[in-house]
Simulated scan of single mutants.
Amino acid sequence: MRTVSGLTTDTFERPRELGDRADPTVLYARTYLLIRLVVGGVGVLLPVALWLVDALVLQGSITLRGSLSAYYHSGARDLFVGALCVVGCLLLTYLAAQRRTWDYWLSTVAGVAVLGVAFLPTQRPPFSTTPPTPLQQRWGEHPVAAAHFACAAVFILSLAALCFVFAARDRRWGGGHPALHRACGVVILVAVAWAVAGFVVDLDLGWLTALYAGEVASVWAFGLSWLVKGSDLLGRPLLTRRGS
C-alpha cells in the first residue's frame, strides 16, 4: 500500500517456509531476518554488556554511568563504539534493494544517526583525566556533545517509527504481533519523554538517572521488536505472504 509520499509499508513476497536454501527468495528472506535478529540482539544485550565490561572485566566502577553514551569515556569504550558501528552498518544495508519502502528510509536514517552517536562522543564526566578526542579539541566539547544528542534523538525516534511500521504491516496482513510492536513504539516514545523530563525535574533514583533509564528502556524496546520480527529464522512457519 503506497502513501502520498510514494513509499510503501509492504516489502517483498515472502516464501511460505525457509527450508529450501537453493531458492534465491529463501536466501534473501533469511538474510533479511538475520539482520533483524542481530540488530535486536545487540540492542537487548548492549546495556548489560557495557556494565559487565566496565564493572567486572576491566575492574571499573560498579555504579551505573549517567547514560549509555557515558560508556564512551569508560573501559567499555571499544564495546560501545563497536556495537553501534555494527548496528549502524546493518541498518544501512537493511532492505537496500527496496528503496521505495518506509523500512528502508527509516532504517537508513537510523543507521546514519547511530554512526553519529558512535563517532561524536558526549561530554567527558566531571574531573575526568581522559584527554578530549581530536574532534572535541577541534570543534569543542559542547558542540560535539550537542551533535551527539541530536543523532541519538534521530536514531531513537526512527526506531520508534519502525516499530509502528512493523505493527501496521502485521495488522494488515494478519499474523505477527502488531500489539507488541505498537507497545514497543509507545515505550520508546515514553522513555524519550522521561529522559527529557529528567533534565527539567529530578527523576533520578540513586545511581539510576532518568537519562540512563530512558535510554535503556528505548534500546530494550527496539531490540525486542526486532528480535520478534526476526524470529521466523528460528523455525517458526511463515504465515503471511508479504513483508512480515
Rank of each mutant, 00 (worst) to 15 (best):
R124N: 12
T9R: 11
T93H: 06
V154S: 06
A195E: 02
G111K: 01
R77P: 04
S69C: 02
L224S: 01
L95T: 06
V216P: 11
T8A: 10
A217M: 05
L56G: 13
L7W: 03
S67F: 00
T31C: 04
V114D: 00
G176W: 07
T101P: 10
V192L: 05
G43I: 00
A197K: 00
Q136G: 15
D10W: 04
A29R: 05
W139D: 08
A145G: 05
Y212M: 10
A153E: 10
G230Q: 02
P24H: 11
G19S: 15
A83W: 08
A160I: 10
Q136I: 10
V112P: 02
T240G: 15
C151T: 04
V109R: 10
L224F: 00
C85F: 09
A179D: 13
A146K: 06
L27H: 01
L211M: 10
G40C: 01
R169K: 14
W102P: 07
V196T: 04
V117L: 05
L120I: 01
G214Y: 01
R124Y: 05
L33Y: 07
T240Y: 11
V44F: 01
G40A: 03
A217E: 07
A55K: 02
A195S: 10
A167H: 03
R124V: 08
L84M: 11
C151R: 01
F166R: 12
G82L: 11
L34E: 01
I35H: 09
S5D: 14
G82S: 01
Q59H: 13
T9F: 12
